[in-house]
């Protein structure tokens, strides 16, 4: 288990900066959700933590190690991909065992871990099937299983539920949360779905256009949004915004006519 420290993290492609000075401390065992509209840089941030994208400047620390230059496999992380990225030619068992085999664990140890994970996820009877013989929900579990067996310091989830139907999504959301609490592994979860974010995370990092808009618990974000964006993005059903003017005697709802003349009632 480990804490994660993001310090002044920036990412550029050529001259285009897509992430701007991201800061964030993630505590040991915490479940963090990074949320934001598509293109806000949330997946990029996650992939930087995974080591699949290089860091332009700033620092990522996992535990007490600086991991900027480490290969993904050396960072002691596991990742669940949006499309699961199961190896189609390997059985469920082989899929889960692959990373362990590379790390040269003993056969007995590999078997033990796979069986354990399969039991937790209730996929024991599918171990010898190929991914294409599984339903979407089952594949999702296998992808989770592949992450669990590695016994990593950090779980990374890249929109893992977005390929499931609505009902299954709710169910899996609950399971992921329970599983994470049970294993106590520090987790970062990326999604664009506000409901998912609000119900899953210990804390939420709201990203917009490569900037961190706010980083805090769901209640904080809901009660005291730091910006109009956060308020608008998280509110469900959608919030109504009415322009207003702060005046000496309080807040006035304001409507401007074409003439610019202000009408309104002071509150």
């Amino acid at each position: 288990m480990a804490e994660i420290k993001l310090t002044d993290l920036t990412k550029s492609y050529g001259s285009t900066e897509v992430l701007h000075h991201v800061e964030g401390d993630i505590n040991d065992g915490e479940f963090i959700v990074i949320v934001g509209p598509s293109g806000c840089g949330k997946s990029t941030l996650l992939r930087m933590v995974a080591g699949l994208e290089t860091v332009t400047s700033g620092e990522i620390r996992i535990g007490d190690r600086r991991v900027n230059e480490l290969e993904p496999s050396a960072r002691d992380i596991a990742m669940v991909f949006q499309n699961y990225a199961l190896y189609p030619h390997m059985s469920v068992r082989e899929n889960m065992a692959y990373g362990l085999k590379i790390r040269k664990l003993s056969k007995a140890e590999i078997n033990k871990r796979v069986e354990e994970a399969a039991e937790i996820l209730e996929i024991g009877q599918y171990l010898d099937r190929k991914p294409r013989q599984l339903s979407g929900g089952q594949r999702q579990r296998v992808a989770m299983g592949r992450a669990i067996v590695r016994d990593p310091q950090v779980f990374l989830f890249d929109e893992p539920l977005s390929n499931l139907d609505a009902k299954l999504r709710v169910q899996m959301r609950l399971e992921i949360r329970k599983l994470q609490q049970r294993l106590g592994v520090t987790s970062i979860y990326v999604t664009h779905d506000q409901v998912e974010a609000m119900t899953l995370g210990d804390r939420l990092m709201v990203l917009n256009g490569g900037y961190v808009e706010q980083f805090g618990t769901p209640i904080e974000l809901y009660d005291r949004p730091a910006s109009v964006f956060v308020a608008g993005f998280l509110g469900s059903p959608a919030m109504n915004f009415i322009p207003a003017i702060v005046e000496a005697d309080g807040v006035g709802f304001a409507r401007r006519h074409k003439t610019g003349r202000r009408t309104g009632a002071s509150g």
Binding site: G51, L52, S73, F81, Q82, Y84, A85, Y87, G99, R103
Partner: peptide, 26 residues
């Protein structure tokens, strides 16, 4: 899919291992 390589890298597979274990069978 790119995720095959990403997943294999997280699993710790080097280039030739990825080539023989993933790419050739696929």
């Amino acid at each position: 899919p790119d995720e095959m390589l990403e997943s294999a890298r997280i699993d710790g597979a080097g280039p030739m291992r990825f080539f023989f274990d993933i790419l050739l069978p696929l």
